[in-house]
Amino acid sequence: MPAPEARIFENIKTEKPATRKLLELDIKFGDLTDKNVEQFRILNYLNLPVIYSEDFYRRLINNLRYSKLAYLKDVLVGAISCKEDDYEGERVVYIMTITILKPYRRYGIASKLLEQAVKDCAKGNIKKMNLHVQSSNQSALEFYKKHGFEIAAKLDDYYTDLQPADCYVLVKNLEQSTTSQ
């Protein structure tokens, strides 16, 4: 799969979305499949600081179970991608990315995606979810904490292509949270 043509995305400007009052949106979830993975790729390509390798997407296709796409009136506006993983000898689900297109941020879509993933994990008898967050990414840390994740460790020099290179490992214990929430 070659990278999407740069020229296809003309006029790209990055601007911060204005804060606005929340409109309740009817978000539907869909599955990530080998047929629509390119849509997911474009989502990440334009919205994440890291450009993922082809290998990432190839592995992803083989491990799609806990990934979800978010649709607003049939338009793909965001996605969560996860994979099953081993963490300290336990079967966990590792969150790789959560992406929401800029115009659709601050509508609570990411929360809905994460909640959906948590539900799916619980159904799949997964006891724990975890992820890495760049140490400087305050808003992400806040977001995950709000959803019951806790800092379990700090890894130095985790990223090779980002500054700062340190990250936190965040973990959410599903057995507790399903009873407490």
Partner: peptide, 18 residues
């Protein structure tokens, strides 16, 4: 159409029109 693609690049119809 470029503005639309910039806004929501995941919609197939946009590329079709372009």
């Amino acid at each position: 159409i470029n503005e639309a693609i910039n806004h929501t690049p995941t919609v197939i119809d946009l590329y079709v029109v372009k």
